[in-house]
Structures are given as structure tokens and as C-alpha cells.
């Protein structure tokens, strides 16, 4: 969707952290991306490489951890895990599901020197 903007958001966080924790370089960065976050991981990896140029994270290794998509079923009331946003409820087959998490886009941690 807007992976360039996301990469810019990541850069802002990294630059803040670099000032706060006085590090020079990020070796590795781990993101947690929910299945329903609408993030195209390949596009984000590409944007990351471009946007991090000239920042402490230039050349850093990017790892993305998938977080499951969960939804509340309005028919059976169960909190279920969905592989795809439009899958039916695995418990009762209903299609009335409200996502409850899975839209996360978080920087988990980073290894710095």
C-alpha cells in the first residue's frame, strides 16, 4: 500500500532511538507485521533499502515476523485465527467476522553497534 511512508516511519523511529541510546549503526532490525496489516513485505523490504540510505540503518538486515490474523465471530462469539481476511469462521462457517488484531505494524527490536 504505502510502504514508502512506512519505511519513512521506521527511519524516524531509528533516528530517535539513535539519539536516545547513542548508537551509530543498526545491524539488524526486526518488524512484526500482522497478516491483516495490508503490508506487501517485498515492497517494504525494497522501500527500506532505499529510505535507509544515509541513516544509521543503511545496509541493515531487515527481518519481518508474521503475526496471525484474529477475528471475533459475531455468530458463534469465538475469537478465531484466520489465514485470510475473508475466510469464513473456522468454528461455525459464518462470514460475520470483525478483525481483532492482525493489523500490527511494529518495530520489535534492533541490534545496534
Amino acid at each position: 500500500m504505502h510502504e514508502m511512508s512506512l519505511a519513512e516511519g521506521i527511519r524516524e523511529v531509528i533516528e530517535d532511538q539513535a539519539r536516545k541510546h547513542a548508537f551509530e549503526r543498526v545491524r539488524r532490525l526486526r518488524l512484526e507485521i500482522g497478516r491483516f496489516a495490508g503490508v506487501e513485505k517485498e515492497a517494504l523490504a525494497f522501500a527500506f533499502d532505499v529510505v535507509m540510505r544515509g541513516s544509521p540503518a543503511e545496509g541493515a538486515m531487515l527481518e519481518m515476523i508474521d503475526l496471525p490474523g484474529r477475528a471475533l465471530c459475531y455468530d458463534c462469539g469465538e475469537l478465531v485465527e484466520l489465514a485470510d481476511r475473508l475466510d469464513p469462521c473456522p468454528n461455525c462457517g459464518s462470514g460475520k467476522l470483525m478483525p481483532q488484531g492482525g493489523d500490527e505494524m511494529r518495530i520489535k527490536d534492533m541490534e545496534v553497534v
Binding site: 512506512l6 532511538q17 505494524m105 518495530i107 520489535k108 534492533m110 541490534e111 545496534v112
Partner: peptide, 13 residues
Amino acid sequence: SRLIEIETGILSK
């Protein structure tokens, strides 16, 4: 090298 736990949303700003 050290690991900094951030747990910050990408769009936190």
C-alpha cells in the same frame, strides 16, 4: 553490538 527492544508502532509519530 546490543539489542534494543523497541516495541513501537511504525506509525507511532
